[in-house]
Amino acid sequence: MKNTLIEIKDLCVNAEDKEILKGINLKINKGEIHVIMGPNGSGKSTTANAILNHPAYKKVAGEILFEGENINDLKTDEIARKGIFMSFQLPEEIPGVSVTNFLKYAKNKITGEPVKIFKFKEEVKKYMDELNMNSKNMERSLNVGFSGGEKKKNEILQMLVLNPKLAILDETDSGLDVDAIRTVSKGIEMFKNENNAVLIITHNTKILSSLKVDYVHILVNGKIVKTGNGELAKEIEENGYSKYKN
């Protein structure tokens, strides 16, 4: 089982005493791209937040194993340091903290090593060029006054810089225009290699067209009701979820 990165077993999660996830099973190996699709309110974002152990989501049953270790009760920052990254649906604005300083600081926390400024800046600059980001944004406060697209690109930039083992992208494509979606896909391609994995949460198939997706999971009402390959996403695009409801 050397190749298994994360394994979720019978996970049940409540939010504000409401049952959201009702027994999720999911296994992601190194080198794979997984997609979770599902209608609004089916528990997609809850899955992502539960993996990062958001305090508002209570795990009532089941376990999450990351590289064989149970991470159910680890703190969010410990999970991040294990190598799990989440791109937020609504990234928070942090006034007064510049993007550069934030990245530098986070990189230092994740790797536990001092950051070499010049090399680091070069690396960040390279990623920003690839993502068509304005390098002036580096000195602006994190996400403050960023447009929706800029915020999402900034999340992808953080993913590239922090280089996690597992990247979870929670609705990273929502609300973006075609060009921006293409940029996000490009970022994922740049990130992806045989030693890491990506979990994409979406209800939009556009982002999937240029990526080689290994598995698509349909999440309805807190359960994975069907798993398939990339073809399943196309089917959803044509027919919607109605077939899988009830």
């Binding site: 990062l52 969010t76 920052d77 999970i79 991040a80 937020f88 942090i94 986070a106 926390k109 922090l162």
Partner: peptide, 11 residues
């Protein structure tokens, strides 16, 4: 905001 920063590895 705290959760966001913690997800980036900050205690």
């Amino acid at each position: 905001a705290i959760f966001y920063l913690m997800s980036r590895g900050l205690s």
